[in-house]
Design a protein around this nucleic acid. Structure first.
Lengths: 343, 343
DNA sequence: AGTGTTATGATAGACGGGTTCTTTTGTCTA
DNA sequence: TAGACAAAAGAACCCGTCTATCATAACACT
């Protein structure tokens, strides 16, 4: 059987051996030069470096990884790259990874189908990753029973806590408390809620926060409305509320996009914001899209979340072991869609 | 020197040899089971699989890659994940990669600093990638002189053509032609332009398209305005135009966000859209953020672009070799911010 | 008994980089 | 000129997976 050619012409990538042959030295000397080790004659070093240049040598990632058992990459699994939550997750993790001189190995699962943590883990495990991060934007069917792969750091980005896996997320419950407290201080009590799709984990926690605050204040909560995160769905909901609820003084929309839609709907219905109805959102995501963004909202520190996620997935000496659940608080940003009630 | 333990307790990842030992078979047989080869007794197969389960065996990515010289991942280098163009690129490539059962190795370069293609290539080359994709949203200083690394597919996402590298992009020049033709058909001639930052490659081509159409029709083009892609910058520009240009009948904003800002500015200045001034944008990116999006715009098929990019970066048998420049046309979407002139 | 089939093991080598150990070469000193 | 010592370079081997041979059983079918 024909041995692959010794790279006179061959398509095989250039190895240290090829460089060694070209420079007339041993492969070890090439290694020494490549890694800047001492005890190499200056003349020899030159010769080797020239050979490297000419042959276009690049060290084999596979060979090196095999040797030192590390990949310098962290695996990230999301279902849909474009969703605000996932995007901001990628961004945050990317910058944390960069600080650690690490790449991200990104796998996008099906955008529509439900996916299990086991499946996500299985796919990530076949890739060059030192740690696994799974964005769980909707409840996985095997969340309770899931066991992380031994020997590799695993983090799930979600609000739910897990007994055997570290979870990290922005505090989607706490943001509701911030906003609701703000509205209460302004005298609002009849606060309607426009949520995202009910399968969304973020939605579940944001809604729970809204509901709990009302209950704690002994206010009977009116039925929450369900949107799909889009401005149009917020508009629909806003229209409905403007026409059917005369007692409402404020709307809490579970994201800024829906809040923006709701504001448009209220104004189209002849209601003033914030004079007649106050509106709040979450995410602080409108700036690029809307001129003079005036929405009161909550901003999350997504880079901090990225760092936390990364550092728990790839524990840097010592941090290892403990399973924790980290919730990163948001920050209330008061603009001009909220005002005190008249009463 | 102490040999690493044979994994009674050791932290070394589980290898085939470990599984073989546990199952009391040879490494050969484990390999046969792992790869579903025939000629393995059903009972033995069971035993091996059980051992794999118990030990948590996962085949070494490094070992396998070293062996068969492929990584099943494509490298993607961008400067800022969150920018619309980059995000949509990631999304398109991710879905193309998934179709090929491939992952994406993502490297984010500095968001602010200029980066060279050589630098990007150097970093990507040290990672497990079968191909390299570089998003060049601003002109790289070494674009002209850049030589791709031999032996690895390289694609630059940009409108500029390159003699030695395949480039792919949405047609940021053609989109201007589509929009300008549309406006001309409606009778507009005094069409002002609100562009993105001038260092942006997309901006350069969109503006060139606007300018060329005017010149071709022997219309002296008024000074283009420069924004930063944000709605606020579009608002500023729109305000300025409303106050200083009485002859203008249409505005071409280089993206939807600025268009949206411009519309708000025009209305705040007492001008009606589209009755007094028509407005168009590019990207079709408003839907999620704005209720009842009525903006006439151009939509790009970002998934097609992703596929083209991917398939040229990782040529599937045969496609290899030729350097091409691919421009994917956009699609004009006429909504209700454009109308015929009165005259 | 002879032939073939199936199951498994033993051994080795390829892949590329890096470490460790050993050998060679060169220089300086007594 | 011999001995000491350091610098330079080479040889061997490991990492884990896969494949390619052989070799050796056990078993079935004529």
């Amino acid at each position: 059987m024909a041995r692959r050619p010794s790279n006179d012409t061959g398509s095989r990538p250039v190895s240290m051996a090829d460089v060694a042959r070209a420079a007339g030295v041993s492969q070890q000397t090439v290694s020494r030069v490549a890694n800047g080790l001492p005890n190499v004659n200056e003349q020899t070093r030159q010769r080797v470096q020239t050979a490297m240049q000419e042959l276009g040598f690049r060290p084999s990632y596979a060979g090196r990884s095999l040797r030192d058992g590390r990949y310098h990459s962290v695996g990230l699994c999301v279902n849909d790259v474009t969703k605000f939550g996932n995007l901001s997750m990628i961004d945050g993790i990317a910058s944390a990874a960069r600080e650690h001189n690490c790449a991200i190995t990104l796998v996008e699962m099906s955008k529509t189908e439900e996916f299990s943590l086991a499946e996500a883990t299985r796919r990530m495990a076949a890739l060059p990753v030192d740690g696994i991060i799974i964005g769980m934007s909707r409840m996985a069917p095997d969340f309770e029973t899931f066991d992380p792969l031994p020997g590799i750091g695993t983090v799930i980005v979600t609000m739910y806590a897990h007994p055997r896996v570290t979870t990290v997320d922005s505090d989607h419950y706490g943001c509701s408390l911030l906003l609701m407290d703000h509205l209460f201080e302004l005298g609002h009590e009849q606060i309607r809620y426009i949520g995202g799709p009910s399968f969304s984990v973020d939605e579940q926690f944001r809604r729970a926060g809204w509901q709990d605050v009302l209950e704690r204040n002994h206010i009977e909560s009116a039925e929450p409305l369900e949107g799909d995160w889009s401005a149009n769905s917020g508009y629909e909901a806003g229209r409905y509320l403007a026409e059917h609820d005369r007692t409402m003084t404020a709307i809490y929309a579970a994201n800024d996009q829906m809040a923006n839609g709701a504001i448009a709907a209220l104004r189209d219905s002849g209601l003033r914001v914030p004079e007649d109805v106050s509106v709040v959102g979450v995410d602080d995501s409108l700036d690029d899209f809307v001129a003079h963004n005036e929405l009161t909202t909550v901003r999350f520190d997504l880079h901090q979340r990225g760092r936390e996620v990364f550092e728990h997935a790839v524990p840097e000496a010592g941090t290892a072991g403990k399973t924790v659940a980290i919730r990163i608080p948001g920050q209330l940003i008061i603009r001009h869609t909220t005002a005190a009630t008249h009463a």
